[in-house]
Design a protein around this nucleic acid. Sequence first.
DNA 1: TAGTCTCACATACGCTTCGTATGTCAATGC
DNA 2: GCATTGACATACGAAGCGTATGTGAGACTA
Lengths: 198, 198
Amino acid sequence: MVAQRRAEMVEETRRKLVRAARRAFADKGYAAASMDDFTAAAGLTRGALYHNFGDKKGLLQAVIAELDAEILVRMAAARARAATPWQGLLDESIAYLEMALEPEIQRIMLLDGPAVLGDPSRWPNQSACLRATTATIQGLIDAGTLRPVDAEAAARLLNGAALNAALWIAAADDPPAVLGKAIEAFRRLAEGLLGARP
Amino acid sequence: MVAQRRAEMVEETRRKLVRAARRAFADKGYAAASMDDFTAAAGLTRGALYHNFGDKKGLLQAVIAELDAEILVRMAAARARAATPWQGLLDESIAYLEMALEPEIQRIMLLDGPAVLGDPSRWPNQSACLRATTATIQGLIDAGTLRPVDAEAAARLLNGAALNAALWIAAADDPPAVLGKAIEAFRRLAEGLLGARP
DNA sequence: TAGTCTCACATACGCTTCGTATGTCAATGC
DNA sequence: GCATTGACATACGAAGCGTATGTGAGACTA
């Protein structure tokens, strides 16, 4: 600890701030989260926040980048477990849907994120999980599983569908039941992308 | 003006506040819109706002209810013009998508609304336009055009897809081109709900 | 029609919060 | 050994929100 390198200490400070902010944003929402409060909870002050992240929005971006990276990993894992590429698309989307049910992700990435930072595709990391879905779809088109279509458009729409479904489910009286309905309806929509049409 | 009834004057005050708030929310966003500023723009003070709407969120609810009603009318008009019920569903969805491109609707209903008030299905008016889509889909299922599916789930997903597409288009460098892609992809997804499968 | 009451706002106040400007201290470079 | 830079903390000012209180015009009653 004595001879800890400068850069390491800075990284540690940033991690502490991101962690505390993540908790506060998830708990109270971005607007209601007081910078004084959660920086104090991290054993720091707003001075550290402004120095490292510029402003409150900058910290939100950092939190979102971290969440996005975690989502990406979990989606990739779901896709990897699937038997076929087509099932991989479905499973990765369902995984996204289920993650979107988690209060932390829902509150920060789906509600406050767009309101504060605007469209996710314009975020610094460009919403990596969205690009992953785009790539998955493009792969299925190239393989002939899906009819040709703009992959990014399809990815955006599927993501949006899953996102809205998540908000719906989370607010529902009987989430598990609604989750089932949503997954079934989602599968139907996605099947619209499949190859042969009658 | 002299013998104007009390109730009429109250209605007028509420209309002025809603109009001013709608403009301010659309222009600066909910969080950045100062109550002092836009009430003054309406020739009133925050006193009138708190008396009529309880708080800032209450006024946002009123603004959203107004917007929602307008959207409902325009979607119904689009559906009414369509040749077939199936085309009606597509047209009403495309109309929704195009409305969601308008900065006022996008900012207030799609970005700030959910962030401040939570899931739209829990809003006071229960998002009338969402219920309309649900009814349209249920009608198509009953008519045998669509395979049986939970109508509300399908409506939520289609709405979410259109919503996300709108955010994407609005932030795009070439909105008209992206709009075309989005509509085509949307049609594909919706076709997944159709009757016969190969 | 005089007096009272109530409603629909306006005004005044305090608290919280954000952003910036300034201060401090250790580490680094020369 | 001294100047400089970087990484924070502290101090300050400006809004903004919500509430508590004030006020005047119309409504109600006798």
